[in-house]
């Protein structure tokens, strides 16, 4: 049994002058307790790889965001262009609908103001009009001839 385990006071050995041909006494030496060895290289490599991958992912994501932003900018630009185009068309429509433009176009097509105008009014029996309507057109239907045409363009029924 080891003296270390006895708890007894350690025996101090006084070095004796070694006699020739005598071996030194053997003693039991306990293995040295050393902390577990950390593999610095592996950890470092993994860490670096993680940082690299993280940065790469970040850069990639940022790149995607930038691309999306550019795409968004393009879309917004297109929207603005279309909006501007709509407004321009709106002006063109208003210009083409302007009475002076209509008249110019009609004249260009050879149309002329009519020498005569014909008004059509429903007769009382044909219209089935309400008393209120009758009151409004009654005078005309009574006063006007059934069919009248100076130009001959009207065909009698």
């Amino acid at each position: 049994m080891s003296i270390l385990s006895t708890g007894a006071p350690r025996r101090v050995t006084v070095p004796q002058p070694q006699r020739e041909g005598e071996r030194p006494p053997l003693r039991l030496v306990e293995p040295e307790v050393r902390p577990r060895r950390v593999r610095v290289g592996v950890v470092g490599t993994v860490g670096l790889a993680a940082v690299f991958v993280g940065l790469f992912a970040l850069a990639a994501m940022h790149s995607l965001v930038v691309q999306a932003q550019f795409a968004l900018d393009r879309v917004e630009e297109q929207v603005a262009e279309r909006h501007s185009e709509i407004e321009q068309r709106r002006v063109q429509v208003a210009q083409l609908e302007a009475p002076s433009a209509v008249v110019d176009a009609a004249r260009g097509l050879g149309m002329v103001p009519p020498p005569d105008r014909i008004f059509l009014l429903p007769s009382r029996e044909a219209s089935g009009s309400t008393p209120e309507q009758d009151q409004r057109v009654g005078t005309s239907t009574e006063a006007a001839p059934d069919v009248e045409s100076a130009s001959g363009a009207t065909e009698a029924p």
Binding site: P114, D116, R117, I118, F119, L120, L121, P122, S123, E125, A126, S140, T141, A144, P145, D146, V147, E148, S149, A150, A153, T154, E155, A156, P157
Partner: peptide
């Protein structure tokens, strides 16, 4: 202008 009264019978007007 002229007034044409459109009766119950069919009439056709061109102006």
């Amino acid at each position: 202008g002229h007034i044409v009264t459109v009766g119950s019978t069919e009439s056709r007007v061109r102006a």
